Simulated assay, not measured.
Amino acid sequence: MPSDIPWRGRTGLPPVNNGVPEHGRVPKYFAVARQVSAMLADLRPGDPVPTERELVEQLGCARETLRRALDELVLAGRLHRTRGRGTTVAEPKLILPLVLRSYTESLADAGMSPQRRPVRGEVIAAGPVLAGKLGIANGDKVVHLERLLIAENEPIGLESTYVSLARFPTILEDFDPTTSLYRTYVTAYGIRLTTGQEIIETVLASPREAQLLGTNPALPMLLMHRDTWDEAGEPVEHVRALWRGDRYAVTTALRG
């Protein structure tokens, strides 16, 4: 498999014809991105890449063209920018399965260290859409738990979970937001999640979300909306999770 394709997925094939149109003409930044990407084959994750001045001299391109190429490689998850460290080779994307289990369990199974950092815990009034998802009346009280999802000390996602206050009246006192919420459902309330539905789309982060995740607002994100039900078919939670597109990918099994 070619190693110089700048936006080749970490787990997929390169674009057809290596992304080059049939007429063979590509933008200058695309060609430069392929050249820089080829250099990364000799580097390890975390290694610094040459400076802009060095790359401009080596590749013989304009600085503006180089910057566009580097931006594309950052968006593709090949490069990572950090204040104080500059631009480095990015770690491989974290690939987690789409299954009905907690983030903590999925990350632990992948051999990584999961962490959650609480951002907000509050009681709000449900609007008509949220009320419908939770099977409650419009205006009923809902608990909102917002947490930052961290893998190997790096923020990769921002998760908001909404549950009915009537069903979980003491969850703000019972639940340690640095641990698994699914485990709390079982141990404190005897509730097990049995079915769920998830919708995934691509979005851009809001300025607040980008600040919490420490990313550029232009970075593509994966937005997941998940609704889950218990053994009796009653709705338990609605989750809105925003995942960094440069650090996170999903996998699922398909059966006919």
Rank of each mutant, 00 (worst) to 15 (best):
residue 81 R to N: 09
residue 195 T to D: 15
residue 89 V to R: 03
residue 165 L to M: 08
residue 97 P to V: 02
residue 80 H to K: 14
residue 98 L to A: 05
residue 195 T to S: 15
residue 5 I to Q: 07
residue 38 A to V: 04
residue 58 Q to M: 12
residue 11 T to A: 01
residue 105 E to L: 12
residue 55 L to V: 01
residue 165 L to I: 03
residue 238 H to M: 08
residue 166 A to H: 14
residue 19 G to P: 00
residue 205 A to T: 05
residue 40 L to S: 04
residue 67 R to C: 06
residue 110 A to K: 14
residue 31 A to H: 09
residue 135 G to I: 01
residue 149 L to S: 02
residue 157 G to F: 00
residue 132 G to V: 04
residue 220 P to Y: 05
residue 29 Y to I: 03
residue 126 A to M: 02
residue 19 G to H: 01
residue 60 G to N: 08
residue 9 G to D: 03
residue 114 P to M: 08
residue 95 I to R: 02
residue 224 M to Q: 09
residue 230 D to S: 05
residue 152 E to A: 05
residue 136 I to M: 07
residue 195 T to A: 13
residue 80 H to R: 13
residue 39 M to K: 04
residue 60 G to T: 05
residue 47 D to T: 06
residue 179 T to I: 10
residue 94 L to M: 11
residue 60 G to H: 07
residue 56 V to T: 09
residue 91 E to T: 12
residue 169 P to F: 05
residue 2 P to K: 09
residue 15 P to W: 04
residue 256 G to P: 15
residue 158 L to N: 02
residue 61 C to M: 05
residue 133 K to P: 06
residue 246 D to S: 04
residue 126 A to D: 01
residue 110 A to M: 12
residue 215 T to C: 12
residue 48 P to Q: 03
residue 116 R to I: 04
residue 62 A to P: 10
residue 247 R to P: 00
residue 237 E to D: 11
residue 128 P to K: 11
residue 60 G to F: 07
residue 188 A to C: 13
residue 90 A to N: 01
residue 170 T to N: 15
residue 107 L to I: 15
residue 39 M to R: 04
residue 194 T to N: 11
residue 107 L to Y: 11
residue 23 H to A: 11
residue 107 L to F: 14
residue 75 L to H: 13
residue 238 H to E: 09
residue 42 D to S: 11
residue 14 P to C: 02
residue 67 R to L: 11
residue 231 E to Q: 14
residue 27 P to T: 11
residue 89 V to H: 05
residue 166 A to L: 12
residue 211 Q to G: 10
residue 173 E to Y: 12
residue 64 E to S: 14
residue 145 L to C: 07
residue 9 G to W: 00
residue 244 R to M: 06
residue 114 P to R: 03
residue 99 V to S: 09
residue 34 R to I: 07
residue 120 R to H: 13
residue 43 L to K: 09
residue 221 M to T: 02
residue 154 E to K: 13
residue 91 E to K: 09
